[in-house]
Amino acid sequence: MAEPLVEYLLRLGDDRLVLGHRLSEWCGHGPILEEDIALSNLALDLIGHASLFLELAGTVEGQGRDQDALAYWRDEHEFRNLELCELPRGDFGFTMVRQFLFDAWSLHLLEALSRSTHADLGAIAAKAHKETRYHVRHSSEWMLRLGDGTEESHRRAQAALDELWPWTGGFAYQDQVDQTLRATGIAPDLSQLVAPWDATVRGILAKATLVIPDGPMRMAGGRFGRHTEHLGHLLAEMQIVARSHPGARW
């Protein structure tokens, strides 16, 4: 395993790169022009954040890898994103429920991270946090409209929540990497973010008349390179052009 800070930055960057990529798949296929623009906005912000985290990871690593080397030349088992992020985009309900759950976590995480003792990491987190506040607003409002819209939208949103909720255990996953970075104030204690995230999420879900499913959390492995089968296909598509021309500039 790489140095803890590099690992940590890859986790942050990979979540956003993979999720941003999934959002970008909507471009040209959204339910209405205005929402196409909104989804593209989300995708751009997330991929932008990912670029910053990955570029910093490469710098800290000090082996000459930049954001593109990390994004396009690592294999599946080297990616550190949560499974939640790599699941296919599904219907609009699935996309929005996933986005809401992620945005709510990101909001609290980035707010805490903006106070990191690592100045560069803190700066990226502060900028990303500002944009995430807008993301949460957007996805929350859609949760209400889907959950409390029509019978069909409610059914689809509930089905999405039933499938996605068990993956949310991964948000608070912590290991040696986090422990090491907490000791110097670089990273926050993720277990402290669970209660505020839970409050944010439950409040909106209740208003949306959606029910949180019972049952265990899914076995998670994304944080240490054990992914679902979906990631392989995603990366194959994402990396193909770059990998077909080694050494090329674009």
């Binding site: 990529h21 970008s24 798949e25 471009c27 593209s40 995708a43 751009l44 991929i47 932008g48 990912a50 670029s51 990955l54 954001q67 593109d68 994004a71 396009y72 598509e237 994402m238 193909i240 052009v241 770059a242 021309h245 090329a248 674009w250």
Partner: peptide, 15 residues
């Protein structure tokens, strides 16, 4: 967009 060969181009094309 999903096959753009570097992050800068991915962002530009999406925009």
């Amino acid at each position: 967009i999903t096959r753009a060969p570097c992050l800068r181009r991915k962002l530009s094309l999406l925009a």
